[in-house]
Computed example of a mutant assay.
Amino acid sequence: MKRLKGFITSFLVVATLFTGFGGQSAFTTETATAFSYDEVLYFPTDRYPETADHVSDAIAAGHSSVCTIDRDGADQRREESLEGIPTKPGYDRDEWPMAMCEEGGAGASVRYVTPSDNRGAGAWVGNQVEDYPDGTRVLFIVE
């Protein structure tokens, strides 16, 4: 049922882009890129609510919902995204897009979240994408 719901939502978004609003097409090269992906990952809000809220808010603010996996550049992007954002006792700094994503790094959204939520979410995502090779474009849908 979740996959059907996701398919219907994706279909409606794409159909709206093609048909446009008020007779004008809203489909652009930028939106075509946003909908170009290889895999879909449904992120579980009920398991990791703080991280899910952050991802949702970051995407709504214009950050990419697609993560192009690039593990080798993760350390550099993490340094870039966290630069100037101090640690805070009792919290982790959650990044979106994640450091393992080509889209991450400087300009990423960073939010303080509890360690259990952040680390659980990171482990969950890591397990989901462990078999995907670098270069795989993963669309994140927060449920």
Rank of each mutant, 00 (worst) to 15 (best):
L4Q: 15
L4H: 14
K5C: 11
G6S: 15
G6N: 15
F7S: 07
T9N: 13
S10V: 07
F11A: 07
L12W: 13
L12N: 14
V13F: 06
L17E: 15
L17M: 13
F18D: 09
F21R: 12
G22A: 14
G23F: 14
A26P: 05
F27A: 14
F27H: 10
T28N: 05
T28V: 05
T31E: 10
A32F: 13
A32D: 13
T33G: 11
S36C: 13
S36P: 07
D38W: 00
V40Y: 06
Y42W: 04
P44V: 07
P44H: 09
D46H: 07
D46R: 04
D46G: 05
R47V: 10
Y48L: 01
P49H: 08
P49E: 10
P49R: 05
E50Q: 15
E50V: 11
T51C: 15
T51P: 08
A52Q: 02
A52G: 03
A52M: 02
D53S: 00
H54D: 12
S56W: 01
S56H: 02
S56L: 02
A58V: 05
A58G: 06
G62M: 02
H63A: 02
S64Q: 03
S65N: 05
V66Q: 03
T68F: 00
I69S: 11
D70T: 04
D70V: 03
R71K: 08
G73H: 01
G73L: 01
G73W: 01
A74Q: 09
D75G: 06
D75S: 11
Q76N: 11
E79N: 09
E80C: 02
E80I: 01
L82F: 04
E83H: 11
E83C: 08
G84Q: 06
I85S: 06
P86I: 09
P86L: 10
P89S: 13
G90D: 10
Y91C: 03
R93Y: 05
R93V: 04
D94T: 09
D94I: 08
E95Y: 06
P97L: 00
M100F: 14
E102K: 15
E103T: 00
G104V: 12
G104L: 12
G104C: 10
G104E: 11
G104T: 10
G105F: 03
A106K: 14
A106Q: 14
G107E: 12
G107V: 11
S109H: 07
S109F: 05
V110K: 11
R111F: 12
Y112W: 00
Y112A: 01
V113T: 14
T114K: 15
S116P: 09
N118M: 05
R119H: 09
R119K: 08
G122T: 01
G122E: 02
G122K: 00
W124P: 03
V125N: 03
V125Q: 03
G126C: 08
Q128W: 04
